[in-house]
C-alpha cells in the first residue's frame, strides 16, 4: 500500500514535515502570528475604560510599587540610580516571564484553533512572544522618558538596546517553545510556572544590587552570572543606566544563551509537532 501510494505521488499525512519545510511554512504564515498577538491584546483590554493605556500603566504601576516598597526597605543600601535600575529590571523581567507563561499556555489555551485548523503549531508560541514584545515597546518609551528626566542625558550607548532586543527575542522564543511543548505533554507543569517565575525574579537582581550580595557569599557568583535573565537585564542596564557597563562577557553570555535556547526550542518543539492536535 505504502509503495502504491508513493508511486502515485501521495504523501503520508500527519507525518512531521522536514525541519526546513516546517520553518518555511511557519515563516509564510507570519501574518497570522502578528495578527493573533495584536488581537489578543485588544480583546484583553476591550472591556476597560482606559483600554490600550493599560499596556503602559500596568507595568509602570508595578515598577513604582516595587520602587516604593523596596526603596524604603533597602534604605541607603539601594543601588545607585535606583529608579532607572529598577524600571529596566522590571520591564525586561516581565517580558521574559510573560513570554514564558503565555508561551507555556499557547497550545493548551488555543484548543479551538488547534482542533479546527491545521497550521504549523510553532506559530502559537511565537505569537505569544510577539504579543509580549509589542507590550514591551511602549514600556521602553516610559523608560526613555524616565531616563531623560533623571539622568538628563541621551547617550549613544542607548542604540545598543536594538541588538539586545533581538537577542532577547530569540531567547524568549526558544523559552516559549520549550515551555509550550512541556505543558502539552505534562499538564501538571503549568501549576509550577508561577513559582519558577517568582524564584527567578528574586535571584536576578531586579530591585537590589546582586554584586553586594556576592561580596558576602562569593561562592554563589557562577550561578548568578549564568542566569540568563540576569545577563540580559544587566546588559540592558549597561546600555541605559549610568554607572553600569556592557562588558564583553555579558555580550557573549547573552549571545550564547539566545542562540542555544532558540535552536533548542525550535528543534524540541518541532519534534513533537504531530502530537499537538491529539489534545
Amino acid at each position: 500500500m505504502a509503495q502504491y501510494a508513493e508511486a502515485n505521488g501521495l504523501k503520508r499525512m500527519g507525518a512531521r514535515p522536514a525541519l526546513l519545510d516546517y520553518l518555511k511554512e511557519t515563516f509564510k504564515r507570519r501574518d497570522f502570528a502578528f495578527a493573533i498577538s495584536a488581537y489578543t491584546n485588544e480583546a484583553a483590554n476591550a472591556r476597560t475604560a482606559l483600554g490600550k493605556w493599560w499596556l503602559i500603566l500596568l507595568p509602570t504601576i508595578q515598577a513604582a510599587t516595587y520602587g516604593l516598597i523596596f526603596g524604603l526597605i533597602l534604605g541607603d543600601s539601594r543601588p545607585q540610580n535606583f529608579l532607572p535600575f529598577l524600571f529596566t529590571g522590571v520591564f525586561l523581567f516581565s517580558f521574559f516571564s510573560g513570554s514564558f507563561s503565555s508561551g507555556a499556555s499557547s497550545i493548551t489555551s488555543n484548543g479551538g484553533l488547534v482542533r479546527s485548523l491545521s497550521f504549523p503549531r510553532m506559530l502559537l508560541p511565537i505569537a505569544a512572544v510577539a504579543r509580549q514584545f509589542l507590550n514591551l515597546l511602549p514600556q521602553l518609551g516610559v523608560l526613555a522618558v524616565l531616563l531623560l528626566v533623571l539622568q538628563q542625558t541621551i547617550s549613544i550607548s542607548w542604540l545598543a538596546v536594538l541588538p539586545i532586543l533581538i537577542l532577547a527575542l530569540l531567547f524568549a522564543s526558544g523559552l516559549a517553545m520549550i515551555a509550550a511543548r512541556l505543558t502539552v505533554q505534562v499538564r501538571d507543569l503549568s501549576k509550577l510556572i508561577p513559582f519558577v517565575t517568582r524564584i527567578v525574579f528574586y535571584i536576578s537582581g531586579i530591585f537590589f544590587s546582586i554584586e553586594r550580595v556576592l561580596e558576602s557569599v562569593p561562592a554563589l557568583a557562577p550561578f548568578i552570572y549564568l542566569n540568563p535573565i540576569y545577563d540580559f537585564i544587566e546588559l540592558t542596564r549597561g546600555a541605559l543606566v549610568v554607572g553600569h557597563q556592557m562588558t564583553g562577557t555579558l555580550w557573549l553570555a547573552c549571545s550564547i544563551w539566545a542562540t542555544v535556547t532558540f535552536v533548542t526550542g525550535v528543534i524540541f518543539f518541532w519534534i513533537a509537532e504531530e502530537r499537538y492536535g491529539n489534545e
Binding site: 504523501k11 503520508r12 499525512m13 479551538g112 482542533r115 479546527s116 491545521s118 492536535g277
Partner: peptide
Amino acid sequence: VLAGITQATKGAVYASSRPTLLGVGAALM
C-alpha cells in the same frame, strides 16, 4: 486522522495534498 490532526495508533494515511477538516466544535478565538 485523514486531516493529519491526530495520528493513527497504527497504519497510515497517504494523500495528494493535506486535507482540510471542517467539523463542529468550539469557536476559533
